[in-house]
Design a protein around this nucleic acid. Structure first.
Lengths: 199, 199
DNA sequence: TGGGTTCTTGAGTGATTGATCAAATAATAT
DNA sequence: ATATTATTTGATCAATCACTCAAGAACCCA
């Protein structure tokens, strides 16, 4: 056996991401990883160096996927504000058994590691910022398309938008009644739509 | 030495709450607790049974304090909505070195323990609910005092209010620029004030 | 001062942590 | 088929985990 087999590595990373996302960095043990990746300790270390590095790779994966999905949604959206509102409603619409029905992995990571693992926290912070920049860009697009007034503070709106997502996802994490979550998402989505100026 | 010395126990619990709040349940080791409480392992176990129990006691303490402070603020408020808006602005106004400049301990606990320690998570969920109930009651008071229209959905407003707090505190946790945090809190506070109907 | 009780001490418990590596296995090259 | 290289294996490592307990210190009342 000589090929690194990209597919196998990808599958393993996906599994690692899932366990880490579920249990968090500190609560995930090597035993957990061995079970999830179906790999013995030696193989894990040969492939991913150590636990922290594996976590960082999982974070990369999560970040790439999140950003890509958002961009895809925005590309298909009839208007920037419509896309943003849709993004919020999308979280509430996730099927009940969806593994993503929980708090954002970046948020969770920061809560978990800010005061204990500076390296992980720093990278995560950077990722959260880049996602917020994507939100800012989306609001800028809304402005360019005349949906928002020229004096709208896009960075400020982006921060609020990110906060709305965190709030919805935290409720998903809690297992709050789907109706209540839909109501919350609806509130936030309408706030976005209410920004639209008549043209 | 025969007295349990309520004062000493209280001091120890306060210290425990602080470490746990800072590092989280899983990342806090007994060594950390020994250092923080200035107690040897034997004494800790004699006084608090075990780590989980000590954590639960810390949670109790945190919850009691949070609720009490909110109630005190509401009692002094000129009106219910004013008190609620003030509560939001208060987080942004916390001094830079304040140890409470971080995510809510209940939120952190749920992120940290939902998929690993059901007992802790359950109690924490109950506490968060009770706090939200206090928020609901505050909105009800606003309604009774004519600040809100009779058909206002107080439970829904309370959930959004709680979400706003989480968002602000998460930014505190991240160490976001104080100006940006003030702006975010201001946005949320004005949303509350905008609910006021003219009487 | 002395006897009795309570509380504190910290070395030590077994279990588990993240991590290692020589040996075994599998794949390719010859 | 054989030699060479690449990969996987799992027993094992030291360190740390949450936790215990026999021994000593600190207190009380006599």
């Amino acid at each position: 056996m000589s090929r690194p087999t990209q597919y196998q590595r990808d599958t393993a990373l996906e599994a690692a991401m899932q366990v880490f996302w579920q249990k968090g960095y500190h609560a995930t043990s090597l035993k957990d990883l061995e079970a999830a990746l179906e790999m013995k300790p030696g193989s894990i270390y040969a492939a991913f160096s150590n636990k922290e590095n594996l976590y960082l790779l999982s974070l990369d994966r999560y970040f790439d996927r999140s950003l890509t999905r958002f961009q895809a949604l925005m590309d298909d959206a009839p208007s920037a504000l419509a896309g943003l509102a849709d993004h919020l409603r999308g979280f509430a619409k996730m099927p009940p058994q969806d593994h993503a029905r929980q708090v954002c992995m970046l948020t969770k990571t920061l809560v978990d590691t800010t005061n204990t693992d500076p390296e992980i926290a720093a990278r995560t912070k950077a990722y959260l910022e880049r996602i917020r920049e994507a939100f800012t860009a989306a609001f800028e697009r809304a402005k360019a398309e005349g949906e928002l007034p020229p004096d709208a503070d896009c960075a400020r709106l982006a921060r609020r938008f990110q906060a709305s997502i965190s709030a919805i996802r935290f409720e998903l994490h809690l297992g709050t009644d789907p109706e209540d979550i839909t109501a919350l998402a609806e509130d936030f989505a309408r706030e976005i739509e209410a920004l639209r100026q008549d043209t």
